[in-house]
Design a protein around this nucleic acid. Structure first.
Lengths: 341, 341
DNA sequence: TTGTAAGCGTTATCAT
DNA sequence: ATGATAACGCTTACAA
């Protein structure tokens, strides 16, 4: 008849006629507890099906041993690699990881941030969404001294540790490669310019063009959200130009894929008629025909680094307020879509 | 000098010379509070940068408004579709979602379950890992009356709501299609048989063969974890048989992809020499050459259904203990890999 | 409509 | 080595 909820340390204490504090200490492997007592308590706890109430412990200790990860989309190889990297080091160091996806939706990102803050995560690892142009939901953390690490799509306006890839060099290398392969009228399908990585990829593109003495016509520059549909629209538009591109640097693999599929339908040959390079090295880019040349980003390493930095901050506890930005190298992977036979 | 932490309702109460309970009620939009008081409190809360401590509230109410989702791998289109479905309905009904991936690793799955339980999630949505053969970590939930919904890789041994696709019919349809296309020596690359979906896909395969009067030779049956590497090993092995298959039903798209890539290297033509059907409709299966025929599973709908069932259970609170299993339909998508011209 | 006070399950401080 | 007790920040009877 008893409204019996979960077993608590008090239940155990009562059963053994000892104090709850002793039970707590034993269960936390506090060396001050004698071996026999600990053994007994552990045994009884198991028998009674005891499960610690972490919320209560967290409330008391003001630590959750949890780190939050916010990404635009978990179903992107790059992001899930980062997540795996984060998990790898977090789990090894006793932290749980809670993952949320913003779907590149600003309101959702805001809500996630609020929720994570209210849940008092010990720290946050974030890559912002494409629509994100204001940052109060993230300043929430930095201002309250909750450790914060940005990766990939970072925000300049907030001081924090940041991990980015060298998007500028990535864009430069990709474009340089297209030029080496004979491209001269080169288009760029890029992302929204409020996101720094897309600025940088564009800047790399422009500088490579400049270095080669090639003109960058505005009609060859398209900015959208880089989805499958956006990619198709972009290539349609490019093909309507008086002068058509003979090469395209796409700021992600998804739009490169769209372009390739659309060109196939139009019976325009890749790479013979148009050279293509993507960005991110999504798994499909390797298996598509023609396989897509792309820029590899070390996602797993970035995730490990992010978690490492974050946990370091958590442990140091508002000691240092020197923030660093780490730039990870990119690598050009040459495949079929950009090489003329 | 004060060791000033986060603002609490008490801080607000003190500042306004009212009771903390009034603040609490106002902030929770309790209609019993007068409009002016609420407005004042809300204004002050905002000014003071108040953020509710959800852990404290949860501890008190014994509800977390959080549901846990455990999947083997977030970076599978099927699973991330399910997750999106779960999120869609969960967010709309005021629940947060915390996502974890087991990486098909049993120890990790166990640890995740423990952590989620200790964090007192209000309910759990699970698809088990390939190695999972014991279920105490999940019984933990069912026995303590924490709502539990399984999807896709369900466990027979635990009573709970379950959402599966019709794997048997999926396997049957895939195989029947291969037979219609002229396959007669048909191999099956399947998953581990401790996981029910792979049993069912295999059963569908066998029954379709039987119905067509075709023999199922043990040498044509391979069971592994369906990774890229496993797929390659499987096809290598199949090609070593005296009699080689002229069609293969792969229990997922990943292994189908491996097979296609390996066969391409061996200069064996798909579909001309060997017909292939996969399972799951991963995005890459559409864009690969040849595109992969496959079985579509309605992931997003399954996620929505799972969340709906779970939240229903959470609201009903141990009312009903009638559990249901929902079988979602599968659809054969015919593409290039299984159609002889 | 608002205030008082108890309690959620832990951990930490101070005694013993 | 163990016990008693207060506190973490919130919600909720019950009182006023």
């Amino acid at each position: 008849m008893e409204k019996q909820g979960e077993t608590t340390i008090h239940d155990i204490a009562k059963k053994l006629n000892i104090a709850a504090s002793t039970v707590s200490r034993a269960l936390n492997n506090n060396p001050i507890i004698s071996e026999p007592t600990r053994k007994l308590i552990e045994k009884t706890a198991k028998e009674m099906g005891y499960r610690p109430n972490i919320m209560a412990a967290n409330l008391r200790t003001k630590k959750t041993n949890t780190i939050g990860v916010v990404v635009p989309l978990i179903n992107r190889h790059f992001f899930s690699s980062v997540i795996s990297g984060v998990e790898e080091v977090a789990y090894n160091r006793g932290f749980a990881v809670t993952i949320s996806q913003s779907n590149d939706n600003f309101e959702k990102e805001e809500k996630i941030a609020q929720t994570l803050f209210s849940n008092r995560v010990d720290g946050l690892i974030v890559s912002i969404g494409m629509q994100t142009k204001t940052f109060d939901h993230l300043r929430l953390f930095s201002e309250r001294k909750v450790p914060l690490v940005f990766f990939d799509r970072v925000v300049d306006e907030i001081e924090a540790d940041k991990i980015v890839v060298d998007d500028y060099r990535g864009g430069f290398k990709a474009t340089e490669h297209l030029i080496e392969q004979g491209g001269s009228i080169i288009a760029h399908i890029g992302g929204p310019l409020n996101v720094k990585i897309y600025q940088d990829r564009l800047a790399g593109f422009k500088d490579a063009m400049k270095k080669a003495g090639l003109p960058v016509d505005e009609s060859m520059l398209i900015h959208n959200s880089l989805t499958r549909a956006d990619g198709t629209n972009a290539i349609k538009k490019l093909l309507q130009n008086k002068i058509k591109p003979d090469a395209i640097f796409c700021a992600n693999d998804t739009s490169a894929l769209s372009v390739i599929i659309y060109l196939r339908q139009m019976e325009i040959k890749v790479p013979d008629d148009i050279l293509i390079v993507g960005f991110s090295n999504e798994p499909f880019s390797e298996v598509v025909t023609p396989s897509i040349s792309t820029i590899r980003q070390p996602g797993f390493e970035m995730g490990k680094k992010a978690a490492d930095l974050l946990i370091r901050q958590i442990k140091l506890k508002e000691k240092s307020n020197r923030f660093q930005t780490f730039v990870m190298p990119t690598e050009l992977i040459v495949r079929e879509s950009s090489v003329r036979k």
